[in-house]
Design a protein around this nucleic acid. Structure first.
Lengths: 132, 132
DNA sequence: CTCGGTGCAAACTGTTTGCAGTAAA
DNA sequence: TTTACTGCAAACAGTTTGCACCGAG
């Protein structure tokens, strides 16, 4: 892998990613970053997001609807997908470290890690539901 | 939802899906189904796969690389994604039904269900690894 | 000077859709 | 006859890539 060179664009993307608790799509990142960097191109955003994912500075997560989202929190954690608004939130729950071992008992190959996605309704949307 | 009408194409797709233990992509389904139904179009395959997913006769699963796969096994179960060959296999392990409750403790909104994807190496690929 | 990064636009991939014709009910 | 389903091709969305220029080291 070639040595990285500093770039103002990448820095802005990292800052934005670290500042938000949402899990923005590439497009959302583009829209926000463009506020402070109007001439940035979507291609550059994609290139840098993938770069950050490769170097482990960000996480690339895919939702069941096929959407790709980025997450600056790289320590293992689970996610909740809201089936109303489609938002993805972090779940403040300790990952089950014995899960891999359990799975290994039932599997011929090698288990390395796992990811869990919960489906549900975020607090915002469930509030709106109850007011109807 | 409109009432379904019988279609030979849909039947062939269902048969193929039920016959395989792999989790084929739409394209793989298309390739196989075309053997017995040469004039079927890719659009029809997509329409029917989505239809089956909607009626609950098949499961639509997305892998972290963004690929979409279909699974005729609709009872809850976990999956293993092989990071070598990219195949997706069923894991013969009882789903953890307390997981949703655990997650609910840590979450403001509503948790309904969850899915788990294990990352690892399938038995086929791990065999090939050890012979090098 | 060298080589990684950028903006832009074109290309590409996987999927959906509009249409006119076909076939199940 | 009615209306869902089909094949086809065009359209579409999200993402990647080739290129000429820019800028960090």
């Amino acid at each position: 892998m070639a040595t990285l060179k500093y770039s103002r664009q990448r820095e802005v993307i990292k800052e934005y990613l670290a500042s938000t608790k949402e899990h923005p799509t590439a497009d959302t990142v583009y829209l926000h970053v463009r506020k402070t960097f109007p001439k940035i191109s979507l291609g550059t955003v994609y290139r840098n997001l993938n770069l950050l994912a490769d170097t482990g500075e960000a996480l690339k997560i895919t939702t069941p609807d096929g959407g790709v989202r980025f997450d600056a929190t790289t320590t293992p954690h689970y996610h909740v997908l809201c089936c109303k608004c489609g938002c993805v939130q972090d779940l403040d729950m300790k990952p089950i470290d014995t899960l891999d071992e359990q799975a290994q008992q039932c599997y011929n190959g090698i288990i390395r890690s796992h990811s869990v996605l919960f489906n549900g309704i975020c607090s915002q949307c469930s509030k709106e539901l109850s007011t109807h």
